[in-house]
Simulated scan of single mutants.
Amino acid sequence: MGKIKLNNIRLHAQHGCLPEESVIGSDYRVDLQIEGDLNKPSQSDKLADTIDYVHLNNIVKEEMAEKSKLLEHVAQRIINRVLGELPLVNTVEVCVSKINPPIGGDVESVMVCLDKTR
């Protein structure tokens, strides 16, 4: 087994329940960790044998581009795509952070984390 982590993927997106959030948008950070069998690629040195982190990054970017009211919803969509498209992945954990959320206080970010194991 092994892990692949994509840390601090920075994006701008239009998630939120407030009308202005879906127009103006906010800055987000996504952290993604997957677990899977990385023994074969550690020996073969072939991209075809591993879990491609470019593919993982593209899933995050595409799902973050689709509007959601809740961070929980976009996080679950990312998990569903990873497990649906990458059969070598056994476990996915995704954390979606909204930077400077409009919650009436000095809060750096809010974060929602979800995980799922096949």
Rank of each mutant, 00 (worst) to 15 (best):
M1W: 00
M1F: 01
K3C: 00
K3P: 00
K3G: 01
I4M: 03
K5M: 15
L6N: 03
L6Q: 02
N7H: 03
N7A: 05
R10I: 14
H12N: 15
Q14Y: 05
Q14E: 04
Q14R: 06
H15M: 00
G16W: 02
G16V: 03
L18S: 05
L18V: 02
L18Q: 08
P19T: 12
E20F: 08
S22D: 00
S22N: 03
V23D: 11
V23M: 11
G25R: 03
S26A: 14
D27A: 11
D27C: 07
Y28T: 00
V30A: 13
D31A: 02
L32W: 02
Q33K: 14
Q33F: 06
E35C: 03
D37S: 14
L38R: 04
L38C: 03
N39H: 15
K40C: 13
P41W: 12
P41H: 10
Q43M: 15
S44L: 07
D45L: 12
K46E: 15
N58F: 04
K61F: 06
M64G: 08
K67S: 07
K67N: 05
S68T: 10
K69N: 10
H73T: 15
R77N: 09
I78N: 02
I78G: 01
I78A: 02
N80R: 10
L83S: 09
G84V: 02
G84Q: 01
L86Q: 15
P87M: 14
P87G: 15
L88G: 08
L88K: 11
L88H: 10
N90Q: 14
N90S: 14
N90A: 10
V94R: 06
V94D: 00
C95M: 04
C95V: 00
N100T: 06
P101T: 00
P102W: 08
I103S: 12
G104Y: 07
D106I: 11
D106W: 10
E108R: 07
S109E: 13
S109W: 05
S109Q: 12
C113M: 01
L114D: 00
D115K: 14
K116Y: 09
T117M: 08
